[in-house]
Design a protein around this nucleic acid. Structure first.
Lengths: 257, 257
DNA sequence: GAGGTTCGATTGTCAGGACAAAGTCTTGAC
DNA sequence: GTCAAGACTTTGTCCTGACAATCGAACCTC
């Protein structure tokens, strides 16, 4: 019986990889996008080895650091795994997205559930102690309160209470009913950086039950979230409750190596 | 009035940065750790500019790529922000840890709450349809079931049900009561890679209430989690319930740029 | 045949240089 | 005084080259 060669045929050979040096898009990014779409498309099958970096660089006319940068970005996304002395492998799938700072609106829309919003309240009020601490503003100073009810498929889904520093955003009620809060922030030039979240559960009060169409005492999923931009300024503090019978948080997370 | 110079005094000058070239620890890692601890310690204050990369490299006797690699790792952690033409700034705090795949045991221990575990069940049984799908094994094949009650400060905290592929881990009951499941996995050479989680809420059944010291119908926080190693193999599927009155998930997350 | 050893393959780390792109600041024109 | 153009600073991208660390497999010894 003939010996098997150590490596199967390099799958990246038949991959039609190429880069455009006249494009303003960085070369490493062009490469990482092509690899990522090849993985999603299934051209690069899970478990298969990517050819070694030096050969890949030579074939594409790139330097090894550039190729490494492209591969590294996919490793960070959890799509590839590198092993010294072995090579770079496509992860055996199961990876979707590693938990973004997503708005409920975007999530529902992406899931094909037509989201709808009713603004219950949109006023400026003095900050309570809790809100002031979360936003890093003086207690009693002006903050914007936005209170919304979010529907999916015509059914109430969540009760959202957000506090924003006053004047940060033009909180037009009509726009709030047609899109998500984060989308409005990004559109107005705020670059979101990080968020601190707390997810818990508690029983519904009579009022909450009324709003959400659940009996009093029904279990609710709660989330509190403070969001910060890249200067460290708090841009939003939210206290939300979700109907546990209709909603759960789903997310993927990666182990940092 | 005299003009202010553009830059305040470079804070990294008084930082006692140094690298040990005889150490097996990579140079970029030594540097990033020193910077990180300086940030945590408060020596590098939020908002302050790090000296430019080239000067920093020269001062430390390193090359610029090495310094960049160190800085980049902290940017990925959310501790630093780079701006072209401006410099690298320490993020205005608020960042702790960007959500790890942590075990409840480690979390409780880190919080100073002495965790304790009682193993209720530790048997091999045939996989149900749900478990088989989550673990990627045939329905009815052997899987290990571990059922535990986790205490903190002597109070019941959570009811943990885990299913593992049979034979993956030596599930010694005594070790299970003295440490966490993930720690056991890592110790036996399994490299955790990613997990898919779902967090929700529901009312406690009578049995659950009994176990956890809550009345029937009390709100419980639920988590289901499938964990995968770097070959894509499912190594664990857990269905856990937490007392909502005593536990909430807290985590930080970063916006991927 | 079993076990340790050597060796090739592959990624990890590091250096040094060059130019491009973007933001800030100063200078100058109006 | 205001606005625009240009100089300067800083990070972003890319290249070439070199050696170290680690893994897997083939090889050799016992």
């Amino acid at each position: 019986m003939p010996k098997q060669p150590r490596h199967e045929t390099d799958p990246s050979l038949s991959l039609q990889l190429s880069v455009d040096r006249t494009s303003p898009v960085p070369l490493y990014f062009q490469l990482s996008q092509q690899l990522e779409s090849a993985i999603e498309r299934g051209t690069l099958t899970p478990g298969s080895l990517l050819g070694n970096e030096i050969a890949l660089a030579g074939r594409l006319g790139l330097s090894r650091p550039t190729v490494r940068q492209a591969i590294q970005s996919l490793v960070d996304k959890g799509l590839l795994v590198r092993r010294r002395g072995v090579g770079t492998q496509v992860v055996h799938s199961q990876v979707r997205r590693p938990l973004e700072l997503s708005s409920l609106y975007d999530d529902l829309e992406a899931a094909g559930q037509r989201p709808a919003t009713v603004v219950l309240n949109n006023v400026v009020e003095p900050a309570s102690a809790e809100v002031a601490a979360a936003l890093g503003v003086p207690e009693g100073s002006d903050v914007q309160l936005i209170e919304r009810l979010r529907y999916a498929h015509g059914e109430p889904m969540a009760h959202l209470r957000n506090h924003l520093p006053a004047g940060l955003l033009d909180c037009d009620t009509e726009r709030l009913e047609s899109t998500g809060l984060y989308r409005m922030m990004r559109a107005s030039g705020i670059t979101l950086h990080s968020a601190r979240q707390s997810v818990g559960a508690r029983a519904a009060t009579a009022e909450e039950g009324e709003l959400l169409g659940e009996p009093a005492g029904a279990p609710l999923l709660t989330m509190e979230r403070a969001t910060f931009d890249d200067t460290g300024r708090a841009v939003e503090f939210g206290s939300h409750v979700y109907r546990a019978s209709r909603y759960a948080f789903e997310f993927q997370l990666l182990v940092r190596p």
